[in-house]
Amino acid sequence: MAKVRLLQLGALVVVLVLWAAIAAMGVVSSTALPGPRAVAGAFGGLFGSEAFWQAVGETLRGAVTGLLCAIAVGIPLGLLTGVYTAAEESSRLLMEILRSFPVIALLPVFLLVLGSTPGMKATVVFIACVFPVLLQAQYGARSVCQAVHETVRGYRIPRLLRLRRVVLPAAAPSIMTGLRLAATTSVLVAIGVEVLTTLPGIGHMIMESQQAGASARAYAYIFTAGGIGYTITLLAQFAEHRLLRWRPPAHQDEE
């Protein structure tokens, strides 16, 4: 275990060294690719600045609001359509079409309808995140095995209780997969919207820094976005371990 960790850290160091070497050799201009030291320096400046934390806050607000709405809508809807075959079949085509839409391409429409507002950002995040959650919940709900089904029917478990204590936990592993996907998507889309509009946030700061020629600062923001994405993945993994504790160890090691 420790050995694996060491190797992983080693890989990280190698990338950093390569980066420093490339930047030092001057193959790429220092505005396109500043060295690690310059970026670290930019970070130092940013952590103390209010603008940085505000940008992070704005991005997170949009991402989290959209994600929470996607969870609140996607999980119940997915479970219901998964349980009732008729609902699933009748909505399948619509679902396939809707989820194939590249949400960023719809941005101009949302801009027109909702204007350049934080609500619009959250809406776009919601739309991008709701499908992975919904489809995974649906898939999970359909995975309830025959023997469990029969038991629940034989003991006349009422519908709501069944949904809450049988279908939901049975679908939980699958839902968690959808959630992990949606969580990273949420940050990605929030930043994408900020880059493409004038809405405040990390994306906006990246654009602004670049235009001002402060490429080290731009990279610092980009790495911040990466850090947020990574933190979210860790949080999701932690939640998964907590929520799926009932699974035998063979499953718990699975990624």
Binding site: Q146, A147, G154, Y155, R165, P169, W246, R247, P248
Partner: peptide, 13 residues
């Protein structure tokens, strides 16, 4: 009813 497939009929969670 106690079903033959006792393993499958217990809820693992």
């Amino acid at each position: 009813v106690v079903s033959q497939d006792y393993r499958g009929s217990l809820l693992p969670w």
